[in-house]
Design a protein around this nucleic acid. Structure first.
Length: 657
RNA sequence: GCUGCUGUAGCUCAGUGGUAGAGCGCGUCAUUGGUAAUGACGAGGUCGGGAGUUCAAUUCUCCCCAGCAGCACCA
């Protein structure tokens, strides 16, 4: 086989090699040092092992550990080779499932007779280090389905066998092996050529996970770990984790006295006055934006009869997430049953606002000239979320959506979608989020409506995106049961992503609930419904804001914008006057004339309460009618004349819209 | 809902088979101070709930409940 192939390097240079040349050989032919640093290669856009033969002309590049791909390959090797083997060494009866890489690390799912706990991690980690010390080379073999199954059967690995059995291919199964050890792992690769390329790693935690992600299946132990090129990278990462923990809105919310939860109302928020001030600022800001965008605000019932939800389809498709209330007078006898009679009629708390909005639309006769109707509601919804899903403000059972439904003609979809996207992005900018991605989520298995309607709906959203030039990725099967949706995902200050805004195109509900308008032809037509939200849930969005700003909210959102703190009791009277002037100027201000030192007050209002502005008032300020201004996060003190200071602060406290 | 871990003062957490401790916070007093914790004293707890083992349980066992992490789900 002396056929020649042409290899094109990233810089465009080409080189000739005999067919069957390996990535390692190519690297060696370029430079010995390069070969040493290589851990894998990319051949025509596909990652391959260094030892894979290349048999046709190819675009070729070398992957080193210093690239993102290289780091991911290293993590992959750490989990599949070190972690998996360490577990098998320590617990020979363990069964291996899968071990992929994830953001910042990796995990491996294993089944052990006794679930592993965090205490086992140190032992496993030690074993991993021992294995790494061997610096063993990693070999790969290609195997037929039968041989692969036999190999895993011999080792008692039912999960691996399941993966192989479900695979489409008949051969070419890649098995990786360290040196001459008995241990093998199935992997699509590539892997490091040798364990000596492994950097630093740390096992983080264990958690339960279902085999194949299906809650009907066996629960496995998932071992999480992280791996980096060197100690510094690991340290930085651990530091970032600490930072995320510090920003936890549950912790900050408690410290700042914003809200609390208690067991009798799990998943529902007790908003304290300060937390509710944030809420009101946000809600009022949204209301101003919606009004300016020609939305009309409405309010609809919490409790509605099951017949209503049957019509909307929620009773059939969504009932397990709904709170259902029997329409029966409860029994008041002591120790008696709660209900004397078997309830026959049921009401349900609304989990969504849309069907109610259709009812408002249906009152009276609508003309094509009335459309679009943009109906908004800060709608309080209840959903019976699984206990384990509840998480602070991020996932609650009672939440308020900044919801709206746009009833329009088909010819108005494009413009309405475009206007919505512009509005959403502009609002995010005001709220401090500039970084976002967009997804299109298509028809799920559980759905109502014909395939033709779904085709039309999905196409409609794609057209709108194309018209604005917004890039999007498609998530198959993630749509709502009544229509496809567009999702806006914002990225916060420490790089975490949150799905918030959504635009859902719905041809189904108007039909189900028989909403019509009279067209220019005098005939009845179906309106299209665009379900849309920008914040998503106000509760959750406040949680995101708190974490994004680490509690240091921008002035216009801060529950207390300015604290007037006295240095000495002799300044109390003047401080009271300053406080009143701030209130008169519409600034949310507090007065602190406690018998405490200024150091104490500064710490409390800054570090604990995160108040953006502090006016320190001593005898000097009272004498000169000034204020000493201190900003959150700064040591600087600015002395300004009282009236001037308040005037500019009032200006600064204005909401962005 | 599933798996694992946790539950002690308002908060953060020590601790023990013989009914409990710290720091912060809170209250009182002293202190009137100049920018990220002034000092002293004091009050405050059926040790998540129930059952069991035991002479004795906050401690050990079991069952519930709740919280946390992850899974599944999702705004």
């Amino acid at each position: 086989m002396s056929e020649q192939i042409t290899i094109t390097l990233p810089d465009g240079a080409t080189r000739e090699y005999a067919s069957g040349v390996t990535g390692l050989e190519i690297a060696e032919s370029i430079a010995k040092s390069l070969a040493k640093a290589s851990i894998a290669v990319t051949v025509n856009g596909e990652q391959r092992d260094l030892c894979d033969p290349i048999t046709q002309d190819a675009q070729f590049s070398i992957i080193k550990l210093d690239s993102d791909e290289g780091l991911e390959i290293m993590r992959h090797t750490v989990t599949a080779q070190l972690l998996a083997r360490a577990v098998k060494n320590l617990y020979p009866e363990a069964k291996l499932a899968i071990g992929p890489t994830i953001e910042n690390g990796f995990y491996y799912d294993v089944e052990t007779p006794k679930p592993l706990s965090e205490e086992d991690l140190a032992k496993i980690e030690k074993e991993m280090r021992k294995l790494k010390e061997t610096n063993a080379p990693i070999h790969k073999s290609l195997n037929s389905k039968a041989d692969t199954l036999a190999a895993f059967e011999k080792r008692g690995e039912p999960y691996k066998m399941d993966i192989v059995e479900r695979a489409d291919q008949e051969d070419g199964f890649q098995l990786y092996q360290q040196g001459d050890s008995e241990f093998i792992d199935l992997c699509h690769g590539p892997h490091l050529p040798s364990l000596k390329h492994v950097g630093v790693f740390k096992l983080m935690k264990v958690a339960g996970a279902y085999w194949r992600g299906d809650s009907n299946n066996q629960m496995l132990t998932r071992i999480y770990g992280t791996a980096w090129r060197n100690d510094k990278e690991l340290k930085d990462y651990l530091h970032m984790l600490e930072e995320a923990e510090k920003r936890d809105h549950r912790k900050l919310g408690t410290e700042m006295g914003l809200f609390h939860f208690q067991p009798e109302a799990q998943g529902s928020v007790f908003w304290h006055e300060k937390g509710y001030l944030i809420w009101q600022q946000l809600e009022q800001y949204m209301r101003r934006r919606l009004t300016a965008a020609h939305y009309q605000e409405v309010k609809t019932p919490q409790l509605m009869h099951s017949k209503f939800w049957e019509q909307s389809g929620h009773w059939q498709k969504y009932r397990e997430d709904m709170f259902v209330v029997p329409d029966v007078v409860p029994n008041t006898e002591e120790d008696g049953p709660i209900f004397k009679e078997e309830p026959k009629e049921f009401l349900a708390l609304k989990p969504m606002n849309c069907p109610a909005h259709v009812q408002i639309f249906k009152q009276g006769i609508k003309s094509y000239k009335d459309l679009p109707i943009r109906m908004a509601e800060f709608g309080c919804c209840h959903r019976n979320e699984a206990h384990g899903a509840l998480h602070g403000l991020m996932r609650v059972r009672q939440f308020t959506q900044d919801d709206a439904h746009i009833f329009c003609r088909e010819d108005q979809i494009l413009e309405e979608s475009i206007e919505f996207c512009k509005l959403a992005l502009d609002i995010y900018k005001d709220l401090g989020f500039d970084d976002y991605t967009v997804t299109l989520e298509t028809r799920p298995e559980q759905r109502i409506g014909s395939d033709e309607l779904w085709d039309k709906a999905e196409q409609g959203l794609m057209d709108a995106m194309d018209a604005i030039g917004l890039e999007y990725t498609i998530n198959e099967g993630d749509g709502a049961f009544y229509g496809p949706k567009l999702g806006f995902i914002i990225r916060d200050a420490i790089g975490r992503e949150w799905g918030c805004a959504t635009l859902q195109l719905d041809f189904n509900l108007p039909e189900r609930l028989d909403a019509t308008f009279i067209g220019s032809d005098g005939e009845r037509h179906r309106p299209v419904m665009l379900h849309r939200a920008i914040l998503g849930s106000i509760e959750r969005f406040i949680g995101i804001l708190i974490e994004n700003y680490a509690g240091k909210l921008p002035l216009w959102l801060a529950p207390v914008q300015c604290v007037v703190a006295t240095i000495t009791g002799s300044a109390d009277e003047y401080a009271k006057e300053v406080h009143q002037k701030l209130l008169d100027a519409g600034i949310r201000a507090e007065l602190d004339i406690r018998n405490e030192k200024i150091n104490y007050k500064v710490r409390e209002h800054s570090a604990v309460n995160k108040t953006p502005v502090l006016y320190a008032i001593g005898a000097r300020e009272a004498e000169e009618r000034t204020v000493a201004i201190r900003r959150l996060g700064s040591q600087a003190q600015n002395v300004e004349a009282l009236d001037k200071a308040i005037e500019s602060l009032a200006q600064e406290c204005k909401a962005p819209y």
